[in-house]
C-alpha cells in the first residue's frame, strides 16, 4: 500500500495553474523527496495534501483512503502530519508543551469533552510521547525552554518532534533543513532515517541536495507545477530533464 497518493491534482490561483494534473505517490516506510526550483509548486502540493488548499480537481489518497473531501484536522486524525517551511511553533509555550500538543491536538479532536480536558491515561500517553520524541530528536535538554527563544535549528527540531509525538504514520516535511548549518543538517538526516526505520513514511520538500541525495529512497521532480521526472537519487542525478530544469534556473541566477 502507498502511504500517500496524488492523482491528477490541479491547483489554480485565479488564472494561474500552480500545480498541473500532478500524480505522484510516496511508498510506505520510505523517504520520498519532492524537489524542483523555486515556484515549482512544491509547497502548494503539500498544502493540497494536508487539506489547507482545495484543489480544483484530483484525488488525494492517504493510506488507501480517499481524503480529498476532508479538512486539515480530519486528515491529521487519519494519520497525516506535517511541518512548515515557515516555522509554525507555539512560540509562547515551552518545548515540552509544544511537543505534547502534537498529540493532544488529535486527542482533542475526538469529542467535545476531550477538547475540554484529558483523562489520566491520555496524560500518561502524552508524557511518554513527549519523552520519546524529544529523545529521538535529541533535544531533551531543551524541554523547559520557551519555543520562541530558540535558534532556528533548534526550532526545526522542535517542530519535527511535535509532528513525531502526534504519532502520524505519514509525515510531510517542508524544507526542514532551511536555516540549519551543515552539521545540524547531517544530524537531521540521521534522525529522518531513524524515523522511517521505525515504520513511518516521509514525503520531503528540500532544497539541500546533499541531504536529499543521501537520505531519500525515491525522488519526484516538479517544474512549473508539472511533474517532469521521477526515480532513485542516482537516476535523478543522471537525468538530462532534471539537468535542464535546474540549469535554466542557474543561468538566470548567475546573470
Amino acid at each position: 500500500m502507498t502511504a500517500l497518493e496524488l492523482e491528477q491534482v490541479t491547483v489554480r490561483f485565479g488564472s494561474v495553474v500552480a500545480v498541473d494534473a500532478l500524480s505522484l505517490s510516496a511508498a510506505e516506510g520510505q523517504i520520498t523527496a519532492l524537489i524542483g526550483p523555486n515556484g515549482a509548486g512544491k509547497t502548494t502540493t503539500f498544502n493540497a495534501c494536508s487539506g489547507l488548499l482545495r484543489p480544483a480537481s484530483g484525488r488525494v489518497t492517504l493510506l488507501g483512503e480517499d481524503v480529498s473531501d476532508l479538512g486539515p484536522a480530519a486528515r491529521a486524525r487519519k494519520g497525516l502530519g506535517r511541518t512548515f517551511q515557515r516555522l509554525e511553533l507555539f512560540d509562547s509555550m515551552t518545548v515540552d508543551e509544544n511537543v505534547g500538543l502534537g498529540l493532544e491536538s488529535g486527542l482533542a479532536g475526538q469529542s467535545w469533552l476531550r477538547c475540554l480536558t484529558g483523562n489520566r491515561k491520555e496524560a500518561v500517553r502524552v508524557a511518554e510521547a513527549v519523552e520519546e520524541s524529544l529523545h529521538t530528536c535529541d533535544i531533551t535538554d531543551l524541554a523547559g525552554r520557551r519555543a520562541g527563544e530558540l535558534s532556528t535549528g533548534q526550532r526545526r527540531l522542535v517542530e519535527l518532534a511535535r509532528a513525531l509525538a502526534g504519532g502520524f504514520p505519514v509525515l510531510l516535511l517542508d524544507e526542514p533543513s532551511s536555516g540549519l548549518d551543515h552539521e545540524e543538517t547531517t544530524r537531521f538526516g540521521q534522525i529522518l532515517r531513524s524515523v522511517v526505520t521505525g515504520g513511518r513514511s516521509i514525503l520531503l520538500v528540500e532544497h539541500d541536495m546533499d541531504l536529499v541525495l543521501s537520505v531519500c529512497d525515491y525522488l519526484h521532480v516538479l517544474d512549473f507545477g508539472v511533474h517532469v521526472f521521477e526515480g532513485t537519487p542516482a537516476e535523478v542525478q543522471a537525468s538530462p530533464v532534471v539537468r535542464a530544469a535546474y540549469l535554466g534556473e542557474e543561468v538566470s541566477e548567475s546573470a
Binding site: 494536508s50 489547507l52 479538512g71 486539515p72 484536522a73 480530519a74 491529521a76 486524525r77 502530519g81 506535517r82 512548515f84 509554525e88 511553533l89 507555539f90 512560540d91 509562547s92 509555550m93 500538543l101 502534537g102 493532544e104 491536538s105 488529535g106 482533542a108 479532536g109 477538547c115 511535535r162 509532528a163 502526534g166
Partner: peptide, 11 residues
C-alpha cells in the same frame, strides 16, 4: 500562537 499548526495536528 499558530492556528495553522494546531489544525494540521488534528485539533
Amino acid at each position: 500562537d499558530s492556528p495553522l499548526a494546531l489544525a494540521t495536528h488534528g485539533a
